[in-house]
Design a protein around this nucleic acid. Sequence first.
DNA 1: TTGAAAGCGCTAACAA
DNA 2: TTGTTAGCGCTTTCAA
Lengths: 333, 333
Amino acid sequence: MRRSESSSGRPTIVAIAARLNVAPSTVSRAFNRPELLHPDTVAAVKAVAEELGYVPNQLARGLVSGRANAIGIVLPDIANPFFPPLIRSIQRTSQEAGLSVFIADSDGDPERERELIDNLGPQVHGIINISSRMSSTALRSIADSQNIVLINRDVADMSRILVDTAPAIAQAVELLASLGHRRLAYVGGPSVSWSNMSRRKALLAAGSAHGMRVDVHATELGSYDEAWQLADVLRDSGATAAIAFDDVMAHGLLNGLAARGIRVPADVSIIGCDDTLTTKTQPELTTITSDLDATAREATRVLLAHRGRSRLSPTRTVHGSLLLRGGTVGPVS
Amino acid sequence: MRRSESSSGRPTIVAIAARLNVAPSTVSRAFNRPELLHPDTVAAVKAVAEELGYVPNQLARGLVSGRANAIGIVLPDIANPFFPPLIRSIQRTSQEAGLSVFIADSDGDPERERELIDNLGPQVHGIINISSRMSSTALRSIADSQNIVLINRDVADMSRILVDTAPAIAQAVELLASLGHRRLAYVGGPSVSWSNMSRRKALLAAGSAHGMRVDVHATELGSYDEAWQLADVLRDSGATAAIAFDDVMAHGLLNGLAARGIRVPADVSIIGCDDTLTTKTQPELTTITSDLDATAREATRVLLAHRGRSRLSPTRTVHGSLLLRGGTVGPVS
DNA sequence: TTGAAAGCGCTAACAA
DNA sequence: TTGTTAGCGCTTTCAA
C-alpha cells in the first residue's frame, strides 16, 4: 500500500480526507474550527493526521489568508548582544501563537533595511523593527501598507515600544554628583540611533540640572573599538566620569583606560547601559537595566493583537529602566 | 483611476499583466526567465512593476515550487554569543541568493527542536541545524524527508560542517607543557553537545600524549555561572591550568577565580574556546579561534547547492582552528 | 454537521 | 516569443 502524499513528499489534508472518506474541508475544519464539527470527526481526523505525520503547509495557509503565519524581525546588527535576548523572547511568544519568525540583519544600512522589509512584508503578518535606522518618513510610508511595530524608535502615528533610560540616567547623574563629580562625558553610540539621541539628551538635561558640564564624544558606529580609542580623549578631557551609550562601549572604555594605566573607579568612573553583557567585567560594570523580555513580549502582543484586522492603530508604550550599581563608580579623588 | 491590486492590498502579476495587456505568465517570466522573453517586454514589465511597487509573493512562489524561498536556522540558544555571527553570515549569504531566513531557538530541548524542525520544514528549502541536541537517530529520520545541514554535529550519512578544535587544543597543551604545567582541568560545556565531547576527547588525548593528568569537570548547561562556581573546585584540585569549553565559561572561571583571590595567570592559567566575546577580558583571554564566517557560508552553500534536486547527498566538511595567545596563560610558579 | 467548489498568487507544462 | 491552462495545499463561502 502506497502512502498517499503530495508531490512534496508530505501528507496533505487531501490524503487525510481520502483515508477517512471525508471532504478536505472537513479536515481543515478539524484543525481550525473544531467547534463546527462533531467531536468524533475531529478525533478521527486528528488520529489519522498523527499517524501520517501531517504538518500543515503554512505556505498554503498563508496564501489563502493573504498573510503568512509568520512575523519578521528587522534589526541593525544581530551580533550586538542587545538584540539576541529580544529575538529570543519574540520567537518564544510567537511560537506560542503558532507563528514562525524571520530574521533579517540590515547591517545598519537604511536602504538595505527598507529592502528587507519590502521583501519580508508579503510573507509575514507583521514586522518588528528594532532600533531602526530609517527615516521617520520612510518608516511611516511602510506603515501605510504593513503591520509594523518599532522597538526603540519613536515615530508619531506608529506603534512603538520604547525603553526610557532617562530616569535611570538622571539617577546615575545624581549618584555621580553625590560622589563629587562635576565634569561628565557621554560616549555616544551609533549616530543615527534613537536610543543614542535620547540618552545623550537625558544626560545633558540631568547634567545641567546639577550644574555639571557634560562633554559629548560622538562616534559613528558605537563600537567597542571606537570606545577603546576614546579612552585617550577621555583622559585628556578632565572629565571624572563617563557614561557610555551601552555596555559594549563601556567595556571598551574600561579596557582602553586600563591599557593606559588609568584606574577605574579610582581615576575615572564608568557607567554603561543595557545590562547586556553575557560575561562580567572586573570590577563589575555599573549599568542601566530594563526588562527586555517584557519589551519583546509587548511588541509581539501588539503585532498579534491585530491579526485579521487590516491595520494597526498606533500605540506608544514606554518601559522603564533601573540603575544597577556595580563597582565602576566611585568618589572623585 | 483605481490602482489594480489584489485583496491583500499589494499589486500582483495579474495587475501588471492587465496594465500591459500581456499574460500573467509573461510577467512571471520577465522576473524568473527573462532570457525567454523579448528584451522590450522584460523592460516594459519591469517598468510597470517598479511603478506599481510590485513585490513577488514568496508564499505563492513557494507553494507552486513546493519549497519556499527561505531556509531555517535551528539552534539551542541564540543568546549564546557563539551563534549570532553564524546567523549573520548565513542570513547574508541567503539574502544574496534571494532567500529569507527563519530562526528558531530550541532552548536546548531536543523535543522542542524536533517540533521546530517539523513546523519549519514545509515552509523552507532546507534547515541549518547548529549544535543540535537531538539524537543521531532522530536527526537521520529528519534527513529522510528534509534538506538539513548540521553545524558542529557529526552524524554519519548527513551533511555536516564541523569545526575541529583538536589541533588547536593539542597546540594549547603543548604550550602548557612547555610552561611546566603537569595537571590540567577541562571545564565541560553542555553535556549533550558534540563540541563538548570532541573537545574533551581532544584534551584527554593531548594530555596523555604529554603524560599529563587531566581532570574533567562536567557541567549540565555549560553556563557562565556554572563555571564561576567551579572556580572553587578548580582551586582545590591541584590543577595549574584549565581549558574551558568556551569563552563564556572561561570568563566565568576568570571572574570566579578573581573573586577568590586567585590570580590568572600567576596561580592558574586559563584557556577558552571559540573567540566569541564581543568584549575583552583583562588579561586578554587565550582562546581558540576559527573562521565561523566560512563555516556559515559553507553550510549555506551546501544547502543551496541542492536547490531543485530532491535530497542532499551527504558531505562532511571539517574546518580548522587556531590557538590565539592572550595573557591568561603563564608558567607554573 | 458536512460537502462541493472556487480561488489565494504564482509557476510550469503545453500550445500557438 | 508569448498565451492558455492547470494546479500547488489550503481556507472559505455557499449549499445541502
